[in-house]
Simulated scan of single mutants.
Amino acid sequence: MWKFSIALMVAALFAFKADKPAYLLYDSHFKPVKYERMINELSEADIVFFGEQHNNPICHWLELQVTKDLYTNKKEKLILGAEMFETDNQTVISEYLDGIITAKQLETEAKVWQNYQTDYKPLVDFAQKNHLNFIATNIPRRYASIVSKGGLEALAKLSEEAKKNIAPLPIDVDLTLPGYAEMMKMGGMHSAGSTISAENITKAQAIKDATMASFILKNWVSGKTFLHYNGSYHSNNFEGIVWYLKKQNPALKIVTINSVEADDITQPNTKDKGSASFIVAIPSDMTKSY
């Protein structure tokens, strides 16, 4: 009887996997890669894109770890920037970094996201503590809304002062790029009694990408690494922001990170293969931050 009980206990032990990693790291070909190797490669880049899932806590924890480790390698040669801040909020952010205003004033006057406190404040505070620039790169949302309703030509009505907060006009949009083409397939939408076309929705995405690229380039300095935090769809498959950067400066060394979710992170979805220089696979049942 006791032999049978021991056998049951052994079987129960082997019924569960001993390790439960919160993430696994791969290269673009889905070959496992060590974190240290990724940091070394990021340190040699001109521009790094950390493509996150906005509500995934592992992404935000890793963003902070990558920032800290890049700073160890680069020190003052590191620049930070984010989709989560709009260009017309740069003055407020800079005043906070310089210690002129308080954290509360920053959160009140800048259009911070709902998960700012838990997910992005640690990055901004790290920049302040270590005297790093933190660049607001995204187009003010009111201007993206104008494009979604009236197309890119509607931006011509803006004042010259307002245009300083967006990419230089006119901008090229290639709607045949796979990411944009996929958006086009989703069709239009109805809002406040009017129809917004799929083409204008996609162009609103493009003006975001173009503006982020423009402000990254304005603030990047040769010899430094610009680490940019954004939703993964803005840099996946080296499209979006990356496409606009390459149009302006093909010589840039750009390294991207894509965050994906998978039921089994030892076998990520093959559709994500090649989507970035490095791929972070996170369990699909990971707790969401909102």
Results as ranks from 00 to 15, higher is better:
M1W: 11
K3C: 06
M9D: 10
V10C: 14
A12P: 03
A15I: 09
F16A: 11
D19K: 08
D19V: 12
K20W: 09
P21E: 13
L25N: 07
M38N: 02
N40I: 06
N40F: 07
N40C: 08
E44H: 13
G51E: 03
E52W: 03
E52Q: 10
Q53A: 07
N55K: 08
P57F: 07
P57D: 08
Q65D: 09
L80A: 07
E83F: 02
F85V: 00
D88P: 03
Q90T: 11
Q90W: 03
S94D: 15
Y96M: 04
G99I: 04
I100M: 12
I100H: 09
I100P: 02
I101M: 14
T102G: 10
T108Y: 15
W113G: 05
Q114Y: 12
V124I: 15
A144Y: 01
A144L: 02
S148W: 01
G150V: 00
L152Y: 08
A162W: 01
K163E: 08
K164N: 13
K164G: 06
N165C: 07
A167N: 02
P170E: 11
I171M: 08
D172G: 03
L175A: 11
T176R: 10
T176G: 06
H190K: 14
A192P: 04
A198K: 04
A198R: 01
N200T: 04
A206T: 03
D209C: 04
A210I: 06
A210M: 06
A210S: 12
A213N: 05
V221I: 14
V221Q: 15
V221H: 15
S222V: 12
K224Q: 14
F226I: 03
L227D: 02
S232F: 03
E239K: 05
G240F: 00
V242C: 02
W243M: 01
K246S: 02
P250H: 09
K253G: 05
V255W: 00
I257D: 00
S259H: 05
V260T: 05
E261L: 06
Q267M: 12
Q267A: 14
K273E: 10
K273F: 02
I279K: 01
P283N: 10
S284G: 11
M286K: 07
T287I: 13
